[in-house]
């Protein structure tokens, strides 16, 4: 059976590097996690999350630098507000807020990336495929 996909938006400076470190260390996580590189978590538009759902994803991960560490100073704080409001909006639209997860992974945190990816995969497995009408 095909597993529902999870789209992960990774910021170029921290989380994308973190995912690379997970690769260097050969840490396993499910293959349904598919990544898209953006310069900053602040670039992630709520529209991207909705588009991912519309195109078949069952979960969306947005990963940025830890608070205070954003390469662009404040981008991750902007992501935090937007995703928070988006989740509230999604809940009203019948989409479990857990299908969207914003978290922080630093450039050296390969293990953390793999942990977040595995947790997200478990969450989505538990929720089942999204299947929009």
């Amino acid at each position: 059976m095909k597993e529902p996909t999870i789209v992960g938006f990774l910021c170029n400076w921290c989380s994308y590097e973190g995912a690379d470190r997970a690769g260097d260390a050969r840490l396993e996580y499910p293959a349904n996690i598919r990544t898209v590189r953006v310069m900053c978590s602040g670039r992630v538009e709520p529209e991207f999350v909705l588009h991912a759902f519309r195109e078949g994803a069952s979960g969306v991960l947005i990963l940025g630098c830890h608070p205070g560490d954003c390469h662009y100073k404040m981008g991750n704080y902007k992501a935090r507000r937007r995703i928070s409001l988006l989740k509230k909006t999604l809940e009203q639209l019948g989409i479990e807020p857990e299908r969207v997860r914003l978290d922080w992974v630093a450039a050296g945190e390969g293990e953390r990336f793999a942990k977040v990816a595995n947790e997200m995969a478990d969450t989505i497995k538990g929720l089942g495929p999204l299947e929009l009408s």
């Binding site: 529209e47 909705l50 704080y77």
Partner: peptide, 29 residues
């Protein structure tokens, strides 16, 4: 723009109480 509501979510969240946002906790957000 494809999704008017999502754009508004982004814009409003971007300008909602942004002073000293580096000190704002998750709960405050």
């Amino acid at each position: 723009v494809r999704d008017q509501g999502a754009k508004m979510v982004s814009a409003i969240a971007s300008i909602l109480g942004v002073e000293d946002e580096d000190k704002v906790t998750e709960e405050e957000v």
